[in-house]
């Protein structure tokens, strides 16, 4: 702590202000550096492109997130297993999952899958979460891109 009389002609109040501002800048800088360093570790999921670049060994537990490619959901004959493709616009990963998906899981919408890659590059998920985007829309027909409707029809048809 700087004493009040360390610098002549400067009021103690101003000294404290200068000290506080300098300390604040240092703390913000440290915080920014820390979060930047965390960038990769703190990510909640890999996108398909990141997963390909990261060379993940088959069988390793990973979380994959992306958009469910339109027209890619196929329901298998057992009625519970689905196959679909997750994409981030650059890379595409085929995913298989057996179980119940959240209501908002739909083609053209975001989804997150927990699971592992098989040797053939297929991702076998043991849990699927739906991601919601930032858009909130009123339910008029002219607003809806009809994602939700598409999957319901497909599910019934399978």
């Amino acid at each position: 702590m700087i004493c009040a009389d360390a610098i002549p002609n400067v009021k103690p109040k101003q000294q404290r202000l200068i000290l506080a501002v300098v300390a604040l800048i240092a703390v913000i800088g440290a915080g920014l550096l820390a979060t930047l360093a965390l960038r990769d570790q703190a990510a909640y999921f890999f996108t398909p492109a990141e997963a390909k670049a990261a060379t993940i060994t088959p069988g390793e537990e990973v979380r994959l997130g992306g958009v469910v490619e339109r027209g890619s959901i196929e329901r298998q004959t057992d009625g519970l297993t689905i196959a679909f493709r997750l994409t981030d616009g650059t890379a595409v990963v085929p995913v298989r999952y057996t179980g119940i998906v959240p209501d908002l899981f739909a083609e053209g919408s975001g989804a997150v899958a927990d699971g592992r890659f098989r040797a053939d590059g297929t991702f076998v998920a043991d849990r699927i979460l739906a991601k919601h985007d930032e858009r909130y829309m009123a339910p008029q027909m002219d607003h809806i891109p009809l994602n939700a409707g598409d999957t319901v029809v497909e599910g019934d048809a399978a």
Partner: peptide, 21 residues
């Protein structure tokens, strides 16, 4: 970071929540 939570709906660029809602 890649996150499960969606990005901000209301930004300085406008609102992604329709006025009706």
């Amino acid at each position: 970071w890649n996150s499960l939570h969606q990005p901000a709906s209301i930004t300085t660029g406008g609102s992604a929540i329709e006025p009706e809602l």
